[in-house]
Design a protein around this nucleic acid. Sequence first.
DNA 1: TTTTATTTGAAATGGACGTTTCAAAATTAT
DNA 2: ATAATTTTGAAACGTCCATTTCAAATAAAA
Lengths: 193, 193
Amino acid sequence: MPKTEIFNRENVLKQATEVFHTKGYNATSMQDLVDVTGLNRSSIYNSFESKHNLYLECLKLYENKYQRIISKVLLASNSPINAIKSLFNMYLKETLSDTKTKGCLIVNCKSEMANQNMAIQNFLLNNQKGTIELLEDLIEKGQKGESINKSKSKQEYALYLFSSMQGFRMTGILVNDKDQLQGLINTTLQNLK
Amino acid sequence: MPKTEIFNRENVLKQATEVFHTKGYNATSMQDLVDVTGLNRSSIYNSFESKHNLYLECLKLYENKYQRIISKVLLASNSPINAIKSLFNMYLKETLSDTKTKGCLIVNCKSEMANQNMAIQNFLLNNQKGTIELLEDLIEKGQKGESINKSKSKQEYALYLFSSMQGFRMTGILVNDKDQLQGLINTTLQNLK
DNA sequence: TTTTATTTGAAATGGACGTTTCAAAATTAT
DNA sequence: ATAATTTTGAAACGTCCATTTCAAATAAAA
């Protein structure tokens, strides 16, 4: 019977994600991935097929990680507007704790690869769709419960928040002051009240 | 006396910018630049020193181009709030006319290189400083003339708009519907009224 | 026309790239 | 132990990378 895979697949993906996140896809070499994972080159190809496929798996793991975090945030919130506030505060916390100022892996991926690779573009479109749907649900509830104003439709506010989140992630790359970023969140959410 | 440079420097920079903008810095090869400019490899090195320096010059040209466009927009506006609206509409126009959905060169640059290269980071910080100062001036005037509300300081609204612009540029990469993007602008600016 | 300085073309530099190969080591079930 | 099957290590694959080299072509000034 076969010798079984000895390494922890998810752990390897986390290590690879850290490199891709720090350097971007194109600036990350296979040697970087060998170094950071401690795996042999051929083991990586055996287990992940190609650099591109490994990157896609990193993206999916990153997406799942945030989906889990977001679910917790939503469950812990007592109102839709507070849920949205908590989402932004979660991104604020991530931004402040990121010593390498890497920004968001998915936003960076969109910037680097959305117009170059169809598999990536489809991942991004799907991610966008899911995020906007989640925001639409929150806004609909908030508007019904009167904690979010009705001067714009749920679709309009969802796109606004989706866009604001990307702006926040980009801004956080070169603005690391907590008060400024907290102010930015407050200003962004003032629009919904 | 010497044979003089035969090519148009600014034109070469425009051609190089188009490639860098489409593929990003790391995915653009010197061969790509040779192909698109029609120049010889050694002529490029003679005139632009290195790929990295050529990229920096492209960034500066791109920055200058938008500074000129923005100046015109500001001069043509009859109020600060309309000036801001025109700025966003200018970005909307750029987004819709960009068939390759490249986004903003400077936003993409920040995503790809801000945490990797100090010369680039300094350029980006300087660009950020200039943009925010311009927005602060507009907001100050708008708040004095009562077309922009005073519930936030000019610093807070300037950072909000700066962040919103980046979000808009990112969103425009995968959302190409004019009405949706126009709605996004309206929602963003509703916050100032 | 000759001198002088520069641009040009084409080839070469050495190294890094993503990926493949394959024998040797390792591990599990018989 | 032996057989079966996979992972591993190390080297090699061919290609492309950014950059350099240098002789030949060029063009303005003397």
